[in-house]
Amino acid sequence: MKVIHIALHVTVALLLALAFDCYNTRSHHSSLQDMFSALSTRLLSLATVRTLSKHAPSTSFDHSKDIRHIQPSSSLSSSTTTSSSTMSDKLPVYFISHAGPNQAVDESVTADFFAELGKKWTSLSDPTPASILVISGHWEGDQGIIRVRTSEENKLYYDFYNFPDFMYKLQYPSKGSPKLANRVLQLLSEANIPAEAETKRGIDHGVWVPLLRILPKPEIPIVQMSLADMRDQPTEKTFEYHYKLGQALTKLREENVLIVASGTAVHNLRDLGTYMRSGTKVAPYVAPFDALLDKVALSESESERRVAAINEMAQSKYLRSAHPSLDHLLPFHVALGAAGEDKAKILHKNFFLSLSESAYSFGEK
């Protein structure tokens, strides 16, 4: 019974994630029917295909090793520094891979990581977070304009389709912060970055799904802001723009604002069915591109990090395999810009088929 339960649990989780992503990805090559067909042919082996693992915080990660064979640590906090406090004058910056909507209910190593991260956030002091600003890969402002939610209440945007009814009844009753939103708009104006207030759109699953697992009790006000839609622009220009966007936000770290960039380290939804059918547990581009994120994050200086984030990432032969669309990568650039000179830590590793769910912190003790 236990084996059957695991197989069914994994199947449902993947069906949910793919149902959403096939609909929501603007430029996909595989139809929803094809993806479901691929999943059904792999039904009996999903329990073994889903070989997940995580990596404890460190200053480097050996991508030459097969991540599936690395034993998970007992908890994120057990191998980090003894103090969970941050630098005395500002809060850290985080990049997290939010995974699919099913993470709201799924039991996985990423869900475990989110729970441990929540313990860390609630223990932050000197300063203590007064509000949270989240940049999600699921929102791009039209015509390159950044949009910022200014509402008092955070209604949920169920930006996924073909899920069971209960998924559309999940709640995360967090408050917004017009004060923070207006401060963000002010900073963007000072940096000559076009931005507008948004009151109609709710917070999408790139925000509320991970936060539901990180902070189950939403006691800290949350503001979401968008990326800029720059799909017609050169890759280097898009990376540079979002790096500068992060730089414009960095002052908020001294104002008790926790900046969270929510994307996915490697995010190729088109290839999920292909690698399921082939029996390949991890696509060949996942580890090399994930290693590049590590290299960029762990750069010795801000100038070195900036060059690597803009030029080296744009020129990577793995880029368009790892990210056919850049929307889930750009939050990483926002986090890098907001980090400034602060050192990075690798918080989490999880490779699965054509995805990587790596997470990083910047400026964390």
Score class of each variant (00 low, 15 high):
Trp139Ala: 09
Val184His: 02
Phe113Gly: 00
His138Val: 03
Tyr161Asn: 06
Asp165Gln: 11
Tyr158Met: 06
Phe114Asn: 01
Pro178Ala: 15
Ser177Asp: 15
Gln186Tyr: 09
Ser177His: 08
Ile132Trp: 01
Phe113Val: 10
Ser174Phe: 06
Asn182Glu: 13
Ala191His: 07
Tyr172Trp: 00
Lys179Ser: 13
Asp165Thr: 14
Ile193Asn: 15
Ile135Val: 11
Lys179Thr: 15
Asp165Leu: 14
Leu170Met: 12
Tyr168Trp: 07
Pro129Leu: 04
Val109Leu: 00
Ser136Ala: 05
Ala111Pro: 09
Asn162Asp: 15
Ser136His: 01
Lys169Gln: 10
Val134Ile: 14
Arg183His: 08
Asp142Thr: 10
Leu180Glu: 03
Ser189His: 05
Gln143Arg: 13
Thr122Gly: 02
Thr110Ile: 13
Asn154Trp: 03
Ala181Ser: 08
Glu140His: 11
Phe114Ala: 02
Trp121Phe: 13
Ile132Cys: 02
Arg149Phe: 02
Glu190Phe: 12
Gln143Val: 14
Lys179Val: 15
Phe160Gly: 12
Ser131Gly: 01
Leu156Lys: 06
Ala111Arg: 08
Pro164His: 14
Thr150Gln: 04
Arg149Ile: 12
Glu140Gln: 12
Gly118Glu: 04
Leu185Ser: 01
Phe166Thr: 03
Leu180His: 04
Phe114Trp: 11
Tyr157Lys: 14
Ser123Val: 05
Asp112Lys: 06
Asp142Asn: 13
Gly141Asp: 03
Val184Pro: 08
Gln186Ala: 00
Thr110Leu: 10
Ala181Phe: 14
Asn154Glu: 04
Gln143Ile: 12
Gly144His: 10
Trp121Ser: 03
Trp139Phe: 08
Glu152Thr: 12
Leu170Tyr: 08
Tyr157Ile: 05
Ile146His: 07
Ala191Glu: 11
Asp159Phe: 06
Pro178Ser: 11
Val134His: 07
Phe113Tyr: 11
Gly141Asn: 00
Ser189Ala: 02
Phe114Thr: 02
Asn192Gly: 01
Leu117Lys: 13
Gly141Phe: 06
Lys120Phe: 13
Ala191Ser: 15
Ile193Ser: 09
Ala111Thr: 14
Pro129Met: 09
Glu190Pro: 10
Lys175Gln: 10
Thr122Cys: 09
Ser123Glu: 09
Val148Ala: 05
Ile145Tyr: 02
Leu187His: 04
Leu188Thr: 06
